[in-house]
Amino acid sequence: MAVVESTPARPVISETRRSRWSPLRMLRSVSPAVWTLIALVIFWEVSVRLTHVAEFILPTPSRIIEEIGAYWPRLMVNSGYTIGEIVLGFVFSVIVAVPLAVLITYSRAADRAIYPLIVTSQTIPKVAIAPLMVAWFGYGATPKIVIVVLLSFFPIVINSVVGLRASSAEMLYLARSMGATPWQTFWKFRLPQALPNMFAGFKLATVMAVIGAIVAEFVGSDVGLGYVIQVAGSSFNITRQFAAIVVISVIGMVLFMLMEWAERLIVPWKNSSNIAGEA
């Protein structure tokens, strides 16, 4: 019996990757975006040098790198605090937001009584709440973690709810016709179906968590990269400000890439997903 429709393209592992190393091929494998970035940095360096812009207005990239090197030990200590706030706040967000999303999906009462409040609360600029958090929780790590949670919580709830609701009526009928218990329906059908959306939420949340930590440190802190930026600014040390900005950007990128890596590991069947509720 003949198969009528054409055979689909099965994933073929590329053989070319294994061929011998050459410098030209190495250069080609680098993303074009990286080249754009390098070109921009060179343009920055050259134009600042040619126009003799004062360092307290715009330092050259080479000066910023120098500063990172010179101030490295202090940057590391302060990064530790900032990373700690981000990670703790993010983990706490996940622990609260995911079960809440499950509750909203399963309980009509929660859907009607809680969900609209979560959505409308997003119109409150959370940065404006930051001083209040300092007044309530003092200058320690607590207000920072609270602000990180406030910022990263929303995208996780929204995307998890969207994902958990993505199970079609047919899929749920199918589960019931097999005699699936509500527990089996959740673990074997609904949750895996929701994972791509949930990861979209997690990724957005890591970005928000970094913003939250820095803003919280601006408002009231004596440690962290936000504090470094604040202090350097008050003494017109623009180069040090840039150094701290570079470090915090790298931290943000690394965290985002870690989430992407986790996504590829846990959700290998999906390579792109819709992001809902960008805050």
Binding site: E170, M171, Y173, L174, M178, K188, Q193
Partner: peptide, 25 residues
């Protein structure tokens, strides 16, 4: 039951999708 939409679970292979019936039961 077979619907118009195949309702296959994207995270499972063809065999694993068929086996779902046995796992649940």
């Amino acid at each position: 039951i077979v619907f118009q939409q195949d309702v296959l679970l994207e995270w499972r292979t063809a065999l694993q999708n068929v086996m779902m019936q046995a796992e649940i039961r």
